[in-house]
Nucleic acid binder design. Structure first.
Lengths: 340, 340
DNA sequence: AAATTTTTGAGGTGCGCACCTCAAAAAGAT
DNA sequence: ATCTTTTTGAGGTGCGCACCTCAAAAATTT
């Protein structure tokens, strides 16, 4: 057993009450004594007994996931992971809940956030496209004591906000590397397809992709990104046009998390085989496509890992613990048919 | 808060003492009452409060990792992960320790296991090549109440032994897929290199590899596996001979976890560029080789993940909890330069 | 029916911490 | 020097469970 608060009090030359005040930020402690306690913590290597703290605190941590209302298969998987964790997390004194927000319009999103009662949550993980009104709403929540973590999409508030998610630029670069390797010496054009170019993730992925292709595989020519606007008809039309315009196309890169639309469009156009196809996010659609050989690789991030990481970070923030950063980096996974 | 033991006792119509006897296997409970408690657990959805249990139990779980004495960079990473977890796990009431065993000889290994005092451990995770004497030694430990988990190498004892590690056949298949894709339409031979063919892991990987190559990329010819016996000189010699014998070699597959030897041999032979090279396990050697483009891909399993998973499983066994199996499958990771 | 064994219940203790109250001490203000 | 404010300490309570003892009740044997 490590040293207890009692040992800490003795080592610091203060009472248990003062130790408690320092450990739990209750204020009303002179700088001198506070420093004495801090020094003693270092010296004797005190570590709060998590089990005892959880038991005594008795109050479950209320963690919220703020998630857009509209979203496809990947988001569903994230939601499922949250649910899974809920049943498991009950014994760990955490209550998870999901808050769906409007995401079409920055102001609506901000209003959804503003509607969150700061008393209901100890921390929230926010997935939402950045915007000034949203930022203000988040800052107000933060001011009322809710810890904010950005989830999948970066938020820039004051100070350092933890971020849970992959590095999209590196993800795009990974896709570029695979595309280059899969195409080999073969010359040709690569067609990137996205839902929209508005999203920051898409842009970052494209940047990473172009970077690798340009530097390592200069014989491959990346075409301008096609936008589907999440509309199957439009997808089929623009893809068809693009493929006709560039018959030398030999690779297709689906930048967007939602691969279902483009994949079925490509299937109808008979463009699935013969072309190297790389997509993002593991969903039932991409899994199946990998298995039958329509897709060659999928770049993905594990939703379960995302959720667990977010929960760990939020808990650490609430309990004023430091997190083991190395454990929290979300890996960029590469999936092929054999390692599903 | 979920229901407590008090609620459980009331629901089952028994006393707290009986509930305690059932929950902690103290015996001396009639079948009838035991079933009543079990039924009540289901009915009211009782879940032991892990924090309170850990606190009351007071006794840290003593978990052991049984690891071969000889081992390369990958094993070092595993050991490092165990150490990392140790500092972190102290607050979680677990004490990890590592037991190094002889591994050259099955009898020596068995004797090392036999030397383990069953009173010192609640559970151990064993990494050792299977053999009848080893099996006996493990069974004796199990009989004395130590929970056994197989770690990286499967152990077949009585009943079901948990296994922590990747599916080596699938790992080999993944390597085969990448090799096939990277080589593209290019015909040629692929040279698999291993330390020795004795190890089960190596065999399984080779099987998976051949399976994919044979079925999906029949124009590629896998050569017989080269054995280096972990000897750099021998490695250089056999590789050189093999490459001369088959000038059409265009891919090399390093089956073994230790890539350092073969990689430097290949470097001296100037066989690194021009050939597609795939290896196993992330180490500083494979990382560097990936970055500079000598290696094209690495198939790996995360040591940190391995250790955490093993600990979770051992704890669950000791505390008679069921584990969330989905969370415990170790992923087969694919690494390229961009997703390190 | 008596003696034995097995099963059950009542009750207590302590794990390490969070959170609370109240009084005493120290520091600062007037 | 008195009053006010801030800081400190002593002490208590309870979280849910593990683990213990002892006596009473029930089931089994003799």
């Amino acid at each position: 057993m490590g040293p207890t608060t009692k040992d800490l009090a003795r080592a610091a030359g203060v009472s248990l009450a003062t130790v408690d005040r320092v450990l739990n930020d209750r204020g009303g402690v002179s700088l001198k004594k506070a420093q004495a306690v801090a020094a003693a913590i270092e010296q004797i290597g005190f570590e709060r007994n998590a089990a005892a703290a959880a038991l005594a605190r008795q109050r479950s941590l209320r963690l919220g996931f703020v998630i857009p209302k509209t979203g496809g298969a990947f988001l569903d998987k994230v939601l499922l992971s949250i649910q899974e964790y809920e049943t498991l997390g009950r014994s760990e004194m955490t209550i998870l809940s999901v808050i769906r927000i409007e995401d079409k319009d920055a102001h609506k999103a901000a209003r959804s956030i503003a509607n969150i009662d700061a008393n209901d949550f100890d921390a929230i993980a926010v997935m939402a496209t950045q915007s000034p009104p949203l930022r203000d709403a988040l800052l107000r929540l933060a001011a009322r004591g809710v810890h904010i973590t950005s989830f999948l999409t970066k938020q820039e508030l004051e100070g350092d906000v933890d971020f849970v998610g992959i590095d999209n630029r590196a993800a795009g670069a990974t896709a570029g590397r695979l595309m280059g390797q899969f195409l080999g010496r073969q010359k040709g054009a690569v067609l990137p397809i996205a839902e929209s170019l508005q999203s920051r993730d898409t842009l970052e992925r494209r940047l990473g992709f172009d970077d690798v292709i340009g530097n390592k595989y200069p014989h491959i020519r990346p075409l301008p990104t096609l936008e589907t606007y999440a509309d199957p008809d439009r997808a089929r039309k623009v893809i068809s046009t693009a493929l006709k315009a560039r018959p030398d196309t030999s690779g297709i890169y689906l930048l967007t998390g939602e691969a279902a639309g483009p994949v079925s469009a490509l299937r109808e156009l008979n463009a699935l085989h013969g072309n190297i196809l790389i997509a993002h996010e593991r969903t039932s659609v991409t899994e199946d496509a990998l298995r039958v050989g329509e897709l060659d690789a999928v770049i993905s991030q594990d939703p379960g890992h995302l959720v667990r990481s977010a929960v760990r970070i939020m808990r650490a923030r609430c309990e004023k613990r430091r997190t083991l950063a190395s454990q929290e980096r979300i890996r960029i996974e590469i999936l092929v048919a054999e390692n599903l």
